[in-house]
Amino acid sequence: MEVQFTNAWQKMIEKLQSWLDSLVVNIPNIIIAIIVFIVALVAAKYIRKLALRLLERTKLQHSMKNLISKIVSMIVVLMGLFLILGILDLGKALNTILAGAGVVGLAVGLALQGALANTYAGIVLSYIKHIKFGDWIETSDFEGEVINIDLRAVTLKQPDNNLVYIPNKLVVESPIKNFSTTAQSRVILECGVGYESDLRAVRELVVQTISSSFEAVSNKEDVIFLYKEFGDNSINFETRFWINSTSAIEVARAKTKAIIEIKEAFDKNGINIPFPIRTLHFPEKVSVSTDS
């Protein structure tokens, strides 16, 4: 038993000595590998900054510029790692790592299908010109200002100042209404007047009120006034006009202002805006019982 233990101990000592000899022999290579690794990290940092400066001259969105610069820096680091493996004479280990990385990459890709879909959609959104920072959009039943586009989600600031994070995949697959693609927005206002009203006078009054209340309306011809139908209690009309704004909030404010101005004009001119009423018709002879 003692002989076997002694032999095992001797073999372990010999193995450790061989490892130590290999370490001593490879110390210069290890030092060079450490230097190469540090140089690769520093080079990746400065190359990323240089790539960002060059990309600032392009029309790509900020998120796409960051993505490209990060990819460039990662490539530099990977090149440094491959060089280190060659210096340390670990070519066989490199082949093993690459083979294992393929299997792991396949498993990770299957497990992260949703995340990868959002990443791809984020890259697509970074390229298209229909959405950019500062735009006011409506998509997936949410509306607000685009304040960020990254590889996971589009961030909208809603009118109530709350933030909504919409996955990129939903934004790409859903219809997008962009209020900022034009310099003006149209305000559409519906109302009704009583059947006893002079319809020509109502039209003239509404057009005059709108044209004098908004700077974007230079003359009366810019206001569209249309009677729509004979309603149950009123003759309903619709008026349309443009304002110098690309924000849905400004459209709502302009609509509010138009309602106030039209109501005041109607009150001054004795024009009635009727509300739903119900008329009850009783028979000529109605017996009323007073029994308790």
Rank of each mutant, 00 (worst) to 15 (best):
T6W: 10
Q10L: 12
M12T: 13
K15Y: 13
L16M: 09
S18F: 00
S18M: 10
L20V: 11
V25R: 12
I27C: 01
I27Q: 08
I27Y: 05
N29Q: 15
N29I: 00
I30R: 02
I31C: 07
I35Q: 10
V36E: 05
I38W: 05
I38L: 11
I38N: 07
V39H: 03
K45E: 12
R48Y: 00
R48K: 15
R48T: 01
R53K: 15
L54I: 02
R57D: 01
Q61P: 07
S63G: 04
S63H: 08
M64E: 02
K65N: 05
N66H: 11
N66S: 12
N66M: 12
L67P: 02
V72F: 02
V72L: 09
V72K: 03
M79V: 13
M79W: 06
L81C: 15
I84G: 02
G86Y: 07
L88G: 08
D89P: 05
L90N: 05
G91I: 08
A93C: 09
L94E: 15
T96H: 10
L98H: 06
A101Y: 07
V103P: 04
A107W: 13
V108C: 00
L112P: 00
A117R: 06
Y120R: 05
Y120Q: 07
V124S: 01
S126T: 01
I128N: 09
H130V: 15
H130Y: 15
K132H: 14
K132Y: 10
K132D: 12
D135G: 04
D135I: 07
E138I: 09
E138N: 13
T139M: 12
T139D: 09
T139W: 13
S140K: 09
E143C: 11
V146F: 00
R152P: 02
R152N: 06
A153G: 03
V154Y: 00
T155W: 00
N161P: 00
V164L: 02
Y165F: 11
P167A: 02
L170Q: 11
V172Q: 01
V172T: 03
V172C: 04
E173I: 01
K177R: 14
K177N: 15
S180T: 14
S180Q: 08
A183G: 13
A183I: 03
R186M: 13
E190H: 10
G192H: 02
S197K: 01
R203C: 05
E204V: 04
E204M: 08
L205P: 04
V206T: 03
V207L: 06
T209K: 03
I210D: 01
S212L: 09
S212W: 12
S213A: 10
E215K: 12
V217D: 07
I224F: 15
I224W: 12
L226F: 02
Y227S: 12
K228L: 14
E229H: 14
D232E: 15
N233C: 04
S234C: 14
N236R: 09
E238C: 15
F241S: 06
F241M: 05
W242Y: 14
I243A: 11
S245Y: 03
T246L: 00
A248D: 14
A248N: 15
I249E: 11
E250Y: 05
V251F: 07
V251L: 01
A252W: 00
K255R: 13
I260Q: 01
K263M: 09
A265V: 03
F266Q: 08
D267I: 06
I271R: 12
I271V: 12
R278V: 14
R278Y: 10
L280K: 10
H281K: 12
K285R: 13
K285S: 10
S289F: 08
S289Y: 06
T290K: 14
